[in-house]
């Protein structure tokens, strides 16, 4: 039994390295994207083997799904259907390859030698979890113990979304085929389900795997589906939603930080109300993550700035 699971781990880890290599050897952009999505799913599979099933789901949704959708949408907009150009001359590739191989070798040796050294913050997290306002250790880490990091990460997300919003040009590429009746029906039925699961995901994040980042990814799936759907929102409403939605998470988080600063340290919640603070911040961040990723998808697909007046 032990040997069987070792064999599985061995085969999967070798397969991952080979797949990563194959991904970068594909002849056309489309093949590369499809290969990258398959690679992402197998990475997610390996995470289940190392006790991170919730991260595996997020990787499958974001790392494979959303990234793949972004890349495919960008391919359509850029009209990249031809093969990749010839590779760089060997004079460049050879030293880079050798350098990278040396780096990989060095890191492998360090990893094998230092593997058994006890390290990590597991004990400290579990000792303090009862004060954190969340029974889920990952939520406790990202929204309490290391909330400052998360604040900045939401800030990075905002900057990236704003940059995509600013950079993406008007509609280009081939137009999308109008969706059929089955898709429309699916969208109408699934919209409330998406919202329900999103809210559940935020709520359950206080106790079990889940939380703002998973829920936000889910919401962005709904956003992408809505963009493909038959009834795009009116332009004026959409601009307002985008503007408020993008800034809500970072704004509220920053406000919380400033507010709590008056009582002591940045982002040190009052102990009795930690759960409430975390929940409010999580809901705001969920909305912002969902809308940011939707805006990025729309931007990469070239659907962000379709001006109806210019088209008329």
């Amino acid at each position: 039994m032990l040997y069987a699971s070792f064999l599985f781990d061995l085969i999967l880890s070798i397969a991952l390295v080979v797949l990563g290599m194959i991904t970068l050897q594909q002849k056309t952009p489309r093949e590369a994207v499809v290969q990258l999505m398959i690679f992402g799913l197998l990475v997610a599979l390996s995470w289940i083997r190392i006790d991170a099933p919730d991260l595996a789901l997020t990787e499958a949704a974001i790392g494979s799904g959303v990234t793949g959708a972004l890349l495919l949408a960008a391919l359509r907009r850029l009209g990249l259907n031809q093969r990749f150009p010839d590779p760089a001359p060997a004079a460049i590739r050879l030293p880079v390859t050798l350098g990278c191989a040396a780096l990989g070798f060095l890191l492998s040796v360090i990893l094998i030698q230092s593997w058994d050294e006890p390290a990590g913050l597991t004990d400290i997290v579990y000792q303090n979890i009862e004060f954190s306002g969340s029974a889920n250790p990952v939520t406790a880490v990202i929204l309490n113990f290391r909330a400052f990091d998360t604040l900045l990460e939401i800030g990075v997300l905002l900057v990236a979304a704003l940059s995509v919003y600013t950079l993406s040009g008007p509609a280009g590429g081939t137009p999308v085929r109008p969706p059929g009746p089955i898709f429309n029906l699916y969208l109408r039925w699934m919209t409330p389900v998406f919202w329900l699961v999103t809210l559940y995901m935020v709520w359950i994040g206080g106790r079990a795997p889940g939380g703002a980042f998973q829920a936000g990814a889910l919401l962005s799936g709904l956003g992408a589906l809505t963009l493909l759907g038959p009834s795009p929102w009116p332009m004026r409403l959409r601009r307002r939603v985008v503007r408020w939605g993008l800034t809500l998470g970072f704004g509220l988080f920053l406000f919380a930080a400033a507010w709590l600063w008056r009582y002591g340290n940045l982002l040190t919640y009052p102990q009795n109300h930690a759960k409430t603070w975390i929940l409010i911040i999580e809901i705001a961040c969920t909305l912002s993550i969902g809308i940011s990723l939707t805006v990025m998808f729309a931007g990469c697909a070239g659907w962000l700035h379709e001006d109806p007046e210019a088209a008329a």
């Binding site: 991170a52 913050l121 597991t122 990952v138 880490v141 990202i142 990460e153 939380g211 998973q214």
Partner: peptide, 11 residues
């Protein structure tokens, strides 16, 4: 498993 790297990966 150590929740700190998990949090870093999630974000």
């Amino acid at each position: 498993p150590d929740p700190v790297p998990h949090g870093m990966i999630l974000t």
